[in-house]
Write a protein that binds this DNA or RNA. Structure first.
Lengths: 215, 215
DNA sequence: CGGACCCTTGATAGCTTTCAAGTCAGGTGG
DNA sequence: CCACCTGACTTGAAAGCTATCAAGGGTCCG
């Protein structure tokens, strides 16, 4: 007898482009700045553990977080001379550091490294485009749902998410305020979409519903 | 006698990265689609005249324009197999088309081409990051001002801008509605920041004020 | 136990959207 | 040459979503 087994749809994610940066190890505490906006971009980094945010700040203090990064991610790559964003750890973190010139030399010699650099940049561009769509045309609920699903995917969590950032970080990533993020969380809770064992842990109770919000 | 001459501050713009794509010419009428979202990304394009938009559309019809492109711009480059955005002309336009495989072969042989490809992608990423900051943390007025200044810079116009897109296009780029864009234009007019000889021409009367809004 | 953050909740304000007419400009055809 | 038509744009009134302002509650840690 044949039985139809309902399997969870496999998530078809392109394996993120990466490079193993073979540089010096360095450790940071929570909330430390790795580099600032405007600083010379003469080093390239790879996060080996922990997580961080990259952000820009307007004169009047408005802050926009460009991206969150997790273990394995390369960051600090710039086309120009200086960093366009600042990078700050969310918790304790370890990175590998390599002089930009060394990486460029490598890329010059090995076409493969050059190709990986392009792939990394393209990945970032893809993420950035999704971010634009989200900020331009999605509601607060949709944005929060998208962030939760993105976190789940990138940290490899199944249903119980460790949220390494504050509500303020989420708000500044999502183009919202801290209060709106908080209210959206409680609403999701009431609607049975998530549970909040602690403020920094999110249990996804109805992933399908969250995914339906995002598309 | 020495005189201090107040010169306009030179605009320090990095010359945009470019490649001369040596492919077949092709012509399009106004509002024609060059490629659609989801279509196989097996060709690369360079705009030789005219202008176009790249955009994504959500199920329910919400549209987000990712970018506007002008003569000289390369577009249609993708990391993955398919186009993540659609490309549509704003008016009559001419492009050069090259098979993606040909460009990849070139990049494989000539490190210089590979480097330019990376530079192009990095440029796009930079623009995309600015777009994120704008959509996440700027007001309607600031967004419109930013768009006008960006248009002026990219089309090389001095004070009289030719606006190739509709108000709806601007709205969908800026994450606003057509009404808000229109109202912002009339407000700028009342405040003496711009004049509107026709709906598709904008005269920048107080560029400094506009720049102050953007930062 | 106190303090410092971080988070949540409530009430109100405001910017932008939505809904609804109008106006304008360019192109077509009589 | 002018009436007409259509798409684009502008304007007004009202609603709504999110921000702002203001407390209050939790939790971790010294």
């Amino acid at each position: 007898m044949l039985s139809v087994i309902q399997t969870a749809a496999p998530i078809v994610t392109r394996p993120p482009a990466t490079i193993a940066l073979d540089g010096l190890r360095q450790s940071y505490g929570p909330g430390e700045t790795i580099f600032d906006e405007g600083q010379r971009a003469d080093r390239v980094y790879q996060l080996t553990s922990g997580s961080l945010r990259t952000c820009r700040i307007l004169r009047d203090g408005r802050r926009q977080i460009e991206a969150f990064h997790f273990a394995g991610d390369v960051f600090g790559l710039e086309g120009g001379e200086t960093h366009r964003v600042a990078a700050q750890t969310l918790g304790p973190a370890q990175v590998r550091v390599m002089p930009r010139s060394a990486l460029e030399a490598l890329a010059h010699e090995h076409a493969d490294v050059a190709r990986r650099l392009l792939a990394l940049t393209t990945d970032n561009l893809r993420r950035c485009q999704d971010h634009v769509l989200m900020l331009g045309r999605r509601t607060a609920c949709e944005r929060v749902a998208a962030l939760l699903l993105d976190l789940a995917e990138r940290t490899g969590a199944d249903a119980l998410l460790d949220v390494p950032m504050t509500r303020q970080d989420m708000a500044d990533y999502l183009g919202l305020t801290i209060e709106t993020v908080s209210r959206t969380f409680t609403q999701f809770q009431h609607d049975g979409l998530i549970a909040l064992p602690t403020t920094r842990k999110v249990l996804l109770r109805d992933r399908a519903a969250l995914e339906a919000m995002v598309d």
